[in-house]
């Protein structure tokens, strides 16, 4: 059986991580969700550097990026991924609390694959995560 690629989830807020992971759990997704706490770690993860230098070689099926993160925010990370020849083919979904137009426009300009505002209503949030997981991990074909 083929190895199931992980989902990379970048989020600094522990509550969000817990609730999101709970949501993924509800969806019964087979994919492992690797969580990183800031933008720098996203790049380390993808480039097998820093604390991820010994990580087994594995391309995530999708990257879920929070915008507001310490050290390097989600927009900056997106910019680097989409300008990197090897990384730019990985789908990136912005998963954020912000509904600011600026972020939305900029993300799309940089080539984001999807932009999701986390609903306040947990039930709606659950629904959203479920859709994200099933679409990107199951429906979508990656290179």
């Amino acid at each position: 059986m083929e190895k199931i690629p992980p989902i990379l989830y970048a989020e600094d807020n522990e509550n969000d991580i817990e609730l999101t992971l709970a949501a993924f759990k509800e969806c019964n997704l087979q994919n492992r969700v690797d969580v990183v706490r800031d933008g720098r770690q996203v790049l380390d993860y993808l480039n097998y550097t820093g604390k991820f230098k010994d990580r087994p070689e594995e391309r995530p099926v999708v990257i879920l990026l929070d915008i507001k993160m310490p050290k390097m925010d989600g927009i900056q990370v997106l910019k680097i991924i989409k300008s990197d020849e090897t990384l730019k083919t990985i789908p990136v979904v912005m998963l954020t609390s912000s509904s600011m137009d600026n972020d939305l426009v900029e993300s799309y300009n940089l080539g984001v694959n999807a932009y999701v505002v986390k609903p306040v209503d947990f039930m709606e949030f659950l629904e959203a995560v479920k859709k994200i997981g099933s679409f990107w991990a199951l429906v979508n074909k990656t290179i």
Partner: peptide
């Protein structure tokens, strides 16, 4: 937009 909403969620 970002920070106040998070706790609500």
């Amino acid at each position: 937009s970002h920070d106040l909403r998070a706790p609500l969620r």
